[in-house]
Simulated assay, not measured.
Amino acid sequence: MRAPRSVSISLTELIDMRHRVPEVKLFSAAGRRSPLIGLHHSRLRGRGVDFDQVRVYQPGDDVRTIDWRVTARSREPHTKLFHEERERPVYLLIEQSQRLFFGSERVFKSVLVAQAAALIGWSVLGHSDRIGGMVFGDDGFHDVRPRRSKQNLLRLFDHLIKANHSLMDQTEQKLPNDAFSLVLRRAREVLRPGSMALILCDERSLSEAAEQQLALASRHTDLVLLPVSDPLDHRLPAAGLLRFAQHDAELELDTLNGTLSNAYIQQAKQRRERWTQLSQRLGIPLLPLSTSHDLIEQLRKHLHQHQPGYQQ
């Protein structure tokens, strides 16, 4: 019997995500800065850029791109805009481990990751860039080198679907504690300077070793962090006494215990703060996703918040 759509993903669903690409502008259009690439547009390392136009300076623009001649003539600050060379390599790191095989609301975390990967993949092709990536989970990883072709994206989807469906057959988590850092290390070996890498993983994946690998990767690659979580990752339900069993191990939790609930909330808060601090330290975008909301709505909100001049 086929699993519900909220639990597993199908090739048809991944292909259909291309129809939702126009709903959120992840990459640049003619005469318009990309909301996604524009988050760290001033650090286009190893890529060719061509002058596009001059416009009035806006809050958030890189001061290094100010056109001082036009500014002096007009007595108003102006900045230069550039457009990026085509066919940029974009690499998706996609987690499909047992810890993602869970969801208390709209979809499982593993499904949300797959949907986001498909949406970004189709957006990349629509922007005439090269798309590739790595799917990693409890049974290892599968690498697809970036190419500008629909067939290459479908190859990535094939690995993604197999990894996603294998989660239903596994009874325990086999992913080593340092697996995420090892995958990041492997990705660094194949990523060319100037590439963009989008990290789609469980919020709980971040470790000290993984942070070190991300810091090294950020020196030559534009990174975007998309950690995924579920509301129950952040707060225990007020359900009373709960019992969990796995093989010979058993665990009993009283979710009405205030001390236990507060400790759980604080632990989740520290995880989120760790991602925020990493993002700020490395100067890379952080777009956390939750199973409790629609994917497109979340991405729209994130991109809007990163627009120049945005104020909360």
Results as ranks from 00 to 15, higher is better:
residue 3 A to W: 14
residue 3 A to P: 10
residue 4 P to L: 02
residue 7 V to G: 02
residue 8 S to K: 06
residue 9 I to Y: 04
residue 10 S to T: 15
residue 12 T to C: 07
residue 25 K to R: 13
residue 35 P to E: 00
residue 35 P to L: 01
residue 42 S to E: 13
residue 44 L to V: 15
residue 53 Q to T: 15
residue 55 R to W: 06
residue 57 Y to Q: 06
residue 60 G to V: 01
residue 62 D to K: 05
residue 66 I to S: 06
residue 69 R to L: 11
residue 72 A to W: 06
residue 82 F to L: 03
residue 85 E to S: 15
residue 87 E to R: 11
residue 91 Y to S: 07
residue 100 L to F: 00
residue 100 L to G: 03
residue 101 F to K: 01
residue 102 F to L: 00
residue 104 S to L: 00
residue 107 V to M: 09
residue 111 V to S: 00
residue 115 Q to M: 08
residue 115 Q to S: 09
residue 118 A to K: 03
residue 119 L to Q: 06
residue 122 W to D: 03
residue 122 W to G: 04
residue 124 V to I: 09
residue 129 D to Y: 11
residue 131 I to Y: 04
residue 132 G to F: 06
residue 135 V to R: 04
residue 135 V to H: 04
residue 139 D to N: 08
residue 141 F to W: 12
residue 146 P to L: 07
residue 149 S to D: 07
residue 154 L to A: 05
residue 158 D to W: 07
residue 161 I to H: 04
residue 163 A to S: 14
residue 165 H to I: 10
residue 166 S to M: 12
residue 173 Q to H: 10
residue 175 L to N: 04
residue 179 A to S: 14
residue 183 V to M: 03
residue 184 L to P: 00
residue 186 R to P: 01
residue 188 R to F: 09
residue 190 V to E: 07
residue 192 R to W: 08
residue 194 G to L: 05
residue 202 D to L: 03
residue 203 E to N: 10
residue 204 R to K: 11
residue 205 S to A: 15
residue 214 L to Q: 06
residue 218 S to Y: 05
residue 219 R to P: 02
residue 224 V to W: 02
residue 224 V to Y: 02
residue 224 V to C: 10
residue 225 L to I: 07
residue 226 L to T: 01
residue 226 L to P: 03
residue 232 L to M: 10
residue 234 H to F: 12
residue 236 L to H: 00
residue 236 L to N: 01
residue 241 L to P: 13
residue 243 R to Y: 08
residue 246 Q to Y: 07
residue 256 L to T: 15
residue 259 T to L: 15
residue 262 N to C: 11
residue 264 Y to T: 06
residue 265 I to T: 12
residue 265 I to C: 05
residue 267 Q to D: 10
residue 269 K to Q: 13
residue 270 Q to E: 14
residue 272 R to A: 12
residue 272 R to P: 00
residue 275 W to I: 01
residue 277 Q to C: 07
residue 279 S to E: 03
residue 281 R to L: 15
residue 281 R to I: 14
residue 283 G to C: 03
residue 285 P to R: 02
residue 286 L to I: 04
residue 287 L to C: 08
residue 288 P to F: 04
residue 289 L to Y: 00
residue 292 S to T: 10
residue 295 L to K: 08
residue 302 H to W: 14
residue 306 H to D: 11
